[in-house]
Amino acid sequence: MERENINCYIDNYIGELRHAVRQPILERDVGDVNVDKAKVFFLLLPLLNGERWTDSTHAASIAVGAVHIAFDAHDTIHHQDATSTLQQLTVLSGDYFSGVHYKILAALPDIYFVRTLSTTIGQINELKTNFYKNSPRDVQELLETVESIEANCISDFLYTYGFSEYVPLASTALSMIAFDSAMDQAAKRKLPDILDWTLHQHDIERVQSSLKRKLEKMIAEADFITPLLQEEIRGMTTPLLGKMI
């Protein structure tokens, strides 16, 4: 598969996801849904790598995408004042996207995955709440929490649909990308709420360094993935790997 094709698959997926969650009032007043391309890449990684990808698998991947955009919507709600029409509709957009994920899985039907994903969604909200109110005790807790929040729904999908060998790579890379984003935000003094911890920057850098080593090893050992995709994963994390840590 060529690089252009990879982008094409990702763009098509984003188009399908936006279509699945389309609601005229939300579209008019809230605007286009932002979709995290890195998450889409790892969600579609088995497909990009030539694995068997059925219609059901694809529908379930759209459901996972809907869960993530629901999370993203609710993460933008102001902690004190959500009375503007935009904020009110953003609350409802998250609920709506969440409902779409359930509708897709109910239509398949994949009730097992409904249960699996619901368990994970519950855990992620618990983690977000704990993180929001209390700083993590140590770097290990920080790492585990970010990994769970960023990657667990995607990992559930990969496990459930028979792509478990992709889980460690996806999980590690997504955690790394989240840290990269946090560092950028910290540099701009604009930490997103979910990473609004009070740990010192050097703790985060230690985690990055460890993730970097882990990811490099994983990519080197991932001989089931095409060289182009290995290269893409390196490229996605290059801003980190290229940095002096």
Binding site: A70, H74, I77, H78, H79, Q80, D81, A82, V91, G94, D95, S98, Y102, I111, V114, R115, S118, T119, I121, G122, N125, E126, K128, T129, Y132, K133, D193
Partner: peptide
């Protein structure tokens, strides 16, 4: 606050699906 309300609502919603998820 609002943020806790959002997470609590989402948590409760996930538990709702977990409960009905037992029905095949």
């Amino acid at each position: 606050d609002n943020r806790i309300a959002m997470y609590t609502g989402d948590y409760i919603f996930s538990r709702a699906l977990l409960s009905i998820g037992e029905i095949e």
